[in-house]
Design a binder for these strands. Structure first.
Lengths: 239, 239
DNA sequence: ACAAAAGTGTTCTACCTACACCCATGC
DNA sequence: GCATGGGTGTAGGTAGAACACTTTTGT
């Protein structure tokens, strides 16, 4: 590899006359509160557009790649490590940010809504909104949220990422409610459960969750090892 | 909107201490030559990695957004306008380009291989390669091609983008060969044709193509208006 | 005893897959 | 007349969709 000095020399030699730009990372953070999908938004504390709602973001630093920058931003707001996260799209309209030529790479993230650090969220004047009544966002952030929603819908059909939004132990009903929220439609509980059982990637526990009924509902865990080994053998998750 | 002067003032005020980076656009250009998928590569004429094969690319200019930059790069190499094109992913590893900190946004493009400007290609020392025997590429360009291929496969199943790779008039056999190339497997011709006919988005012409058989094969055109109006009514293209 | 959520199977339909023969023509 | 690619239909299997009643238990 090259040292910084060498790089500067090479850069001067080869790419000297090219334009440089500011690059931001913006994160769409999804959570699920047993009934609906929510996103975490911050009230902007600086100009431009101070006081308006926006996605949480930050600028890419010289020594980071984009994934690292997104992880930093997510950690800064939620206090969480090991967040499920995926790059979405790069927004580049010349006038998207009135203050300067800034491009933004969007990421979406899935977190267990009960696990975030409430103090940090307060400190950053952030707040959870259900997707239906989220406020209007600055710049092109509304479009980012829409694209994230579309991607999440597609991904959830072909990868078992839903579990990232649930607690470790969950009931079948919670899982179904989650998929209903993601897909935006009611599902038949018998079909849903037998589909999921046919995958054989859940562990049924002896415990029951008594919080939502008198009878109680069995709790399940996602068996990630089993899922991975089934994938090795050609298994294809498909809701 | 703001004038450039205002922008500079705002930028100094708000984003002054952030790092700026070079941003490139790299294009995976797909073509189809009746038998297999090909990509258009250029022999790099400048350092670093001069003389090696790479995707065609260029740096984003201050006054462009990314789509415009990609269109410029594509036009520069092929002479074509109105190319089908989609943004794929942004690559950002700190050391991906040894010369300087450069990020690259990849785009893939689909063109009718017979329509490109052969002079321009020669002038840019570019060449078509079938995917199987394409040379090793510089930086992370191999990964870009792989991601493009994955995306193309998925897209081709749910959107009728295959026609972008074919001449305006084509035979059913050509269409089938194209889908076989994209999906990497043989298809049954009866099933393929009856599936496509059930969509009812092709126009069967009275002309025949006599180049590949004595009997001749009917030529078809994609009926884009009909496709669009069917989509309006809820039709879902799904191979 | 009743309210409220949990749990459980079957039938019908639609789509996908596999499969084989005749046709038209140039040589 | 034969070799070459073009064109066409059907039957069986599989996966998805629709659908209703019994169980448990706290109040």
């Amino acid at each position: 590899m090259h040292t910084t000095d060498q790089k500067e020399i090479l850069s001067l030699a080869y790419y000297d006359h090219e334009d440089k730009v500011l690059l931001a990372v913006d994160c769409i953070i999804f959570g699920f509160d047993q009934e609906e999908l929510k996103i975490l938004l911050v009230k902007r504390g600086f100009e431009p557009e101070k006081g308006k709602w926006s996605l949480i973001g930050g600028f890419l630093k010289k020594e980071e790649d984009l994934d690292i920058a997104a992880i930093r931003v997510l950690h800064h707001l939620t206090g969480l490590h090991d967040i499920y996260m995926e790059q979405l799209y790069t927004y580049s309209k010349v006038d998207r940010d009135p203050a300067d030529r800034t491009l933004s790479v969007s990421y979406y993230a899935l977190i267990d809504i009960r696990k975030h650090d409430k103090e940090l969220i307060k400190k950053n004047s952030a707040q959870w909104f259900s997707l239906k009544d989220a406020p209007n966002l600055i710049f092109d952030h509304n479009a980012m949220v829409e694209r994230a929603m579309t991607r999440l819908r597609r991904r959830a059909l072909s990868k078992p990422i839903g579990f990232e939004l649930l607690p470790e132990k969950f009931t079948m009903r919670q899982l179904q409610k989650l998929y209903e929220a993601i897909m935006g439609k009611k599902l038949d509980k018998r079909n849903f459960i037998s589909k999921f059982n046919s995958f054989d990637i859940l562990i049924k526990l002896d415990e029951k969750d008594m919080s939502s009924s008198k009878k109680g509902a069995y709790l399940y865990k996602f068996n990630e090892e089993k899922y991975n080994s089934k994938v090795e053998e050609g298994f294809n998750f498909k809701i």
